[in-house]
Computed example of a mutant assay.
Amino acid sequence: MSSVPVTTWSLEQTSPADLLSAAAPEGDDVRIVRAEAPSPEFSRFLYASVGGDIRWTDRLSWPYAAWQEYLARPGVETWVAYDRGTPAGYVELEAQDEGVVEIVYFGLVPAFRGRRIGGHLLSYGTARAWDLAERWPGRAPTKRVWLHTCSKDGEFAMANYQRRGFTLFDTRVEPEPEVATPGPWPGAYPA
């Protein structure tokens, strides 16, 4: 199997004041709602639908029990953007030790990209990372929010993170196996 070099950039905010919000798109009926009942089926749907064309593959082999166990962990949250009732994208947060929250996954279903939903969803999700401890008694207040993006992600990903106030703290280049676009189903995206 051949490999391709993939650049991964890690970014962070170290204060809620770092967040630069983006307004909701005008004229759209976009709502952002927390998926409070852990659902492996729904989470896998979001993961495959958002990440299929940009080759997210690390969770595709997870069995049902792995999804269930991960989603049930205290401090894991999924926030979903809906456009007129249809899931348009999501932000997945994971509380870590010492007041750190990672934005583990963030993105939009391809049909909803380029409509100014991404900046709004990222702003909203980042704000929820900063106030996550309020929803999870016993968790330390958030002191740092971080994420990573890579050269496989959408062409506007890095700029969106930086416009929301994230700053770069690490860059790595590593080979990864080259994989075909996994879908959400075969043939979903034109080659």
Rank of each mutant, 00 (worst) to 15 (best):
R84P: 04
H148V: 01
R44K: 12
P177A: 08
R116H: 06
R172W: 06
V101S: 03
G51N: 04
D29Q: 15
P38Y: 10
I54S: 02
Y82A: 11
P184D: 02
S10R: 08
D97N: 08
V109M: 08
L60Y: 00
V4T: 07
G27Q: 07
E69K: 09
P25A: 05
L20E: 13
W130T: 06
G154K: 05
D18G: 05
S3H: 05
D83Q: 15
Y189M: 01
I32R: 04
V179G: 00
E36V: 11
E69D: 15
R128G: 05
S3D: 01
V104D: 09
T78R: 13
F166Y: 15
E26P: 08
R44G: 08
G114L: 02
V100M: 08
P40T: 04
P141K: 07
G138Y: 04
W62Y: 11
F169W: 14
P184A: 01
G51C: 01
L60H: 04
D131H: 03
F112T: 14
V100T: 07
T167I: 11
S3V: 05
G138R: 10
P16Y: 08
E94N: 10
V6M: 01
F156V: 14
I32N: 01
S61L: 06
D28A: 14
W79N: 12
V80N: 12
P190C: 02
F106V: 11
Y124Q: 05
A48Q: 15
S21C: 07
D29A: 13
A48S: 10
Y70S: 10
G107N: 07
S15V: 11
A159G: 14
M1W: 00
R172D: 06
Q162A: 15
G165N: 07
A127I: 01
G183H: 06
E134D: 09
G165D: 04
G125N: 11
P87W: 15
Q162I: 15
V4L: 07
A17M: 06
L46N: 11
S15T: 11
M158P: 04
V91T: 12
M158L: 15
S49L: 01
S2A: 12
R34E: 09
T142I: 03
L122Q: 05
V145P: 05
S61W: 14
A72T: 02
L122N: 07
E12H: 14
L11N: 12
P110W: 03
G154M: 02
R139M: 14
L132E: 07
V30H: 13
W56E: 13
V179D: 00
R116L: 06
A111C: 08
F45Q: 10
G52K: 01
V33L: 13
H120R: 00
E98T: 09
R163D: 05
V100L: 09
Y105K: 12
T171P: 00
E77N: 07
R164Q: 13
Q162G: 13
L147E: 09
S2D: 06
L71K: 00
R73I: 09
R135S: 04
M158T: 14
R115M: 06
D29W: 12
D28N: 14
G89R: 06
R116C: 06
L132Y: 04
V173C: 13
R144Q: 12
A129D: 03
S49K: 07
P40A: 06
L60N: 10
R84D: 15
A23L: 08
L93G: 12
